[in-house]
Write a protein that binds this DNA or RNA. Structure first.
Length: 430
RNA sequence: GCAGAGAUGGCGGAGUGGUCGAACGCGCACGACUCGAAAUCGUGUUACGUAGGAAUACGUACGGGGGUUCGAAUCCCUCUCUCUGCGCCA
């Protein structure tokens, strides 16, 4: 949600931003907001003055009652009741106007960064920097599930029986590798000065509707039967929820947090769960980073964050690139976003393993996350950012494909060995 | 899970139907005193919305939501959370 003052003072800027995102159908929303906003203010003024009258009358009644002038008090009461009827009418209309205003406001996209490339959809995203050489293997790289099966590291048949499609059993060294990657990633972020956090894996509906739209909720969230609780789709949900309605002191910023959680997603719509293997699944685990900072620092943090992910993958000797999200592919809440993509030697292309976003104050405004600006003495909206550190088992696809050797063994990079009991490779089961 | 008690400003803590946005204390800010500081004294100090250049005015908010009333921090319902005791468990 953007600042309504920006629409009041500079609607043309907001319209241009909408055009940049190829959402011309939303252009009328700007005028709609202006009209609703004007009406809302009129209604508030009218309501306020009526309430002021009622408050004065109520005080007067108190005085009359004390003086024992019961008849006069009764007359005042009648007038007060009439006032209350009118107040109720205006409050009703005011509430309706506010709902409509909020709805229109929340459909207007966040202002995007100047440097965001203009493009209509994901086909026009722009490759940024490339890290490590993306090499084809001198032999054919099998589908990741086949690699996993050869290693004795996955049991999808049993998972389908117990839980259905979209689940997995990871076993043996592969399961250990999965944990090793998460543990390594956790320590990597701690070394960068982030605070490790294990959040609740379930959150209330109030928080869910704060952190996502109704449509997103329908498509993603699993509800716990008989409880007002949902399984989180990412730790960002509970991590950002943690700060809802809070005003932090300036000294508490930036909050630099790295959180671990399992993630649960229905994966309704979009690609569904059709993709085989462990690319798109109902349950996975993720190490995440989130930053809450002062407005002037968010661009700097954005750069740092996605580079941390790159550094992590490079340290595991996996080639990656930055893919810069173009204007049309940018979600409405985002100011700027990019994916970190890992190289797939099998497909000969990169695929998404992480996503970094600067939401500026749009998410904070929606969730009422503020900080006290010492200089101005005012409470102002903070900026929020989030980024994937690593999310296995999807990440394992990149890992296995890149570190597979011709003999079917999988190489374990130096940095992970201490989490793998010193092993330098995983070998196929006979 | 059961029973009882409770939730008030940055903190502690009064307030049980009207003049309460909230006593008092602490903290914080500014000023006076001082060579400087402590102590002391004085002044100020919630947030949000609307109008205004501003001073300010009005409105809203005493855990959340709803109700009773001319009027609710105060009464009623409900939800959440905290504390104490019992139960249960990793």
């Amino acid at each position: 949600m953007i600042d309504i003052n920006l629409i009041r003072e500079n609607p043309e800027l907001v319209r241009e931003n909408i055009k940049k995102k190829f959402q011309d159908r939303k252009l009328p929303l700007v005028d709609e907001v202006l009209t609703l906003d004007k009406r809302r203010r009129e209604l508030q003024q009218e309501g306020d003055s009526l309430r002021a009258q009622r408050n004065a009358a109520a005080k007067q009644i108190g005085v009359l009652m004390r003086e024992g002038k019961k008849d006069e008090a009764e007359k005042e009461k009648v007038l007060s009741r009439q006032l209350n009827d009118r107040i109720a009418q205006i409050e009703e209309e005011c509430a309706q106007t506010e709902v409509a205003l909020k709805k229109a406001m929340s459909s207007i996209p966040n202002m995007i960064a100047d440097r965001v490339p203009i493009g209509k959809d994901d086909s026009e995203n722009v490759q940024g920097k490339v890290f490590l050489e993306a090499k084809k293997k001198p032999f054919e790289v099998p589908y990741h599930v086949d690699i996993l099966e050869k290693l004795g590291g996955i049991d999808l048949d049993s998972a389908r029986r117990t839980s259905g499609n979209g689940f997995y059993y990871l076993t043996g060294d592969v399961a250990r590798l999965h944990s090793a990657i998460l543990t390594y990633a956790r320590d990597f972020m701690i070394d960068k000065g982030f605070t490790y956090c294990i959040p609740p894996f379930m959150i209330r509906s109030e928080v869910v509707s704060g952190v996502m739209s109704f449509e997103e909720m329908e498509g993603m969230m699993y509800k716990i039967e008989g409880e007002d609780l949902y399984l989180i789709g990412t730790s960002e949900h509970s991590m950002i929820g943690r700060f809802m309605g809070q005003t932090l002191s300036e000294g508490e910023l930036p909050q630099t947090l790295t959180s671990y959680s399992p993630c649960f997603r229905k994966e309704k719509g979009s690609h569904g769960i059709e993709e085989r293997g462990i690319y798109r699944i109902h349950q996975f685990e993720k190490q995440e980073m989130i930053v809450i900072c002062k407005p002037e620092d968010s661009e700097k943090w954005y750069e740092k964050l996605w580079n941390y992910t790159v550094e992590l993958f490079v340290s595991m000797e996996i080639p990656v690139r930055q893919l810069i999200c173009c204007s049309g592919d940018l979600a409405d809440l985002k100011y700027e976003s990019c994916d970190v993509e890992a190289w797939s030697p099998r497909q000969g292309k990169y695929f998404e393993v992480g996503s970094c976003s600067n939401l500026t104050d749009a998410q904070a405004r929606r969730l009422n996350i503020k900080y006290k600006n010492e200089a101005t003495g005012k409470n102002e909206y903070a900026h929020t950012l989030n980024n994937t550190v690593v999310a296995p088992p999807r990440m394992l696809i990149a890992f296995l494909e890149n570190h597979l050797r011709e003999d079917g063994s999988v190489y374990i990079p130096e940095v992970l060995r201490k989490y793998m009991g010193g092993k330098t490779q995983i070998t196929p089961k006979k």
